[in-house]
């Protein structure tokens, strides 16, 4: 089944510059594994070494943030559209302190 994935500028080095790619999967993690097989290294930008969704990456299925849909276990259906956006975040606080504040 085909899922259209919108790729942000910062990840287009993995997709040969393409803004959108197609992938397949019944769940978000299945889709990400499929994309990683076609675009090596892609997964590492979205998933932490511990296997969770990166705190500063937003992924949406259609109009919903996947954090409200079961995160990596979120179900996908044929024709769904997935959008990836790097969080826009920062601030004066040191990085370690920010990470602690945000419970990473």
């Amino acid at each position: 089944m085909a899922i259209e994935v919108r790729v942000p500028t910062i990840l287009r080095s993995y997709t040969g510059g393409s803004k959108t790619v197609e992938g397949a999967g019944d769940t978000l993690i299945g889709l990400i594994d499929d994309l990683d097989a076609k675009h090596s290294g892609f997964k590492g930008r979205l998933i932490t070494p511990e296997g969770g969704l990166h705190r500063f990456v937003n992924i949406y299925i259609n109009d919903e943030d996947v954090r409200f849909l079961g995160a990596l276990d979120a179900k996908l259906n044929d024709g769904d559209s997935v959008t990836i956006l790097p969080a826009v975040a920062g601030g004066a606080l040191g990085f370690a302190a920010a990470a602690a504040l945000l419970g990473r």
Partner: peptide, 8 residues
């Protein structure tokens, strides 16, 4: 006062 993040 020391961090910002766009609402998703």
């Amino acid at each position: 006062q020391t961090f910002y993040q766009f609402d998703s």
